[in-house]
Design a protein around this nucleic acid. Structure first.
Lengths: 217, 217
DNA sequence: ACCTGAACACCGTTCAAGT
DNA sequence: ACCTGAACACCGTTCAAGT
């Protein structure tokens, strides 16, 4: 089968999702595709460029459906959730996306839509930009916290397993030094990423709503 | 000079800050310290453990001075800024911190303080936990956006340089497809991380303040 | 007991030789 | 022109031999 840039990127993504992200070596991708390593370089200039391609591919997969009837608050929420959805679909590719500068058309498309939403809600250009940045920071942080990977991009523990902030087998924390953490063990152990995400998202949406200048429509 | 775990971690941090973070190889650290590679393994079980040590070291360096006279809002702000300060002091180590699960005493200390602050402001345990998580997500996302590194942990461009969202030498975006992004080029190019951080931080603080139940004191 | 060189099974990428 | 094997300069870690 013909080697293409697209096939190489797809193979890289599958490899990342299957074996963790530091399993992405040019050599492994090549053997996955049944080619010699150097054949890849006819379609992709370097490993770094390949990972940029992976990030772009993931960003392009975000489904930004707009409901014109919804309030701007709900539109913002929907856009944020579409972003957050990456962690569900490509958990191990998430860090690749998050750790690359966002300046390709694929990454600017969600920015464009978010800016348009804030502007049509009545925000000025500068406030719209700042609001979008605040949401992006929150979403990116949520993604990072949710997938929790090593610098090598390999999930520390099997995905879905609890981060074990205070598991029984951990070195006991001194209750005198950590009164809150030890007394709130139950709350800290209970992780519901969706609920956590919605909680913070709601905070931001309502705070931004308070900023909004005079009505528009 | 005697090899110690501390000296190894310090050398790793210097190497990361000097040459970018994928310059951290066991071999480079060893040659930096004038030892054989394998000598390191008498003090550190693996490269991954070494990076955990680096993350711990950075987290321990956060200065969490508390001003008991300040409002709880200002205390939360001060704690968030102390966190954010990491990006200034150890820009290239930041991703190492951010990409590791936070369950060591060094990383739980700021959590403990934040929980105590919210609780003494009158929040219940569950709300305090959720608020702390929202702030952490925002701070982590801000750090990631600010240092902007590759999965290999190497800054894409010299630090301090503009991310060039829309630099003149980039492929021109279609203004019909990106009306907001193209018309807001000036705002998008102007990056003031401190101002951006304060903007979002203020949103969160005020939104959380609205949540607060009946007074306490 | 602590230390460490050699070796193993990997990397990304250059370069020159093949078609 | 497109393709690719050999080679180079790297990795982290095991293992066995040294002290």
């Amino acid at each position: 089968m013909q080697l293409t840039r697209e096939r190489i990127i797809t193979a890289a993504m599958e490899l990342i999702e299957r074996d963790g992200a530091n399993a992405v070596s040019m050599r492994r991708i090549a053997s996955e595709l049944g080619t010699g390593v150097m054949s890849l370089y006819n379609y992709v200039p370097s490993r770094a460029a390949l990972l940029d391609g992976v990030a772009d591919q993931v960003m392009s997969s975000i489904e930004l459906t707009i409901d014109p009837g919804a309030s701007w608050e709900d539109q913002v929420r929907a856009q944020a959730r579409a972003f957050q959805q990456i962690a569900r679909t490509y958990p191990r590719c998430t860090m690749v996306v998050v750790s690359r500068p966002a300046d390709s058309p694929a990454t600017l498309r969600p920015v464009e839509l978010a800016l348009a939403t804030f502007r049509s809600a009545g925000f000025g250009g500068e406030d719209a930009v700042r609001a979008v940045r605040a949401f992006i920071a929150y979403i990116v942080g949520s993604l990072v916290r949710e997938v929790g990977v090593t610098p090598g991009l390999e999930p520390q523990r099997p995905l879905g397993q609890d981060p074990a902030i205070l598991a029984a087998d951990r070195p006991i924390l001194n209750p005198a030094e950590f009164p809150q953490v030890t007394s709130l063990t139950a709350e800290l152990m209970r992780r519901d990423h969706d609920a956590d995400f919605e909680f913070g998202l709601d905070l931001l949406v309502r705070a931004v709503a308070d900023l909004r200048p005079a009505r528009r429509s």
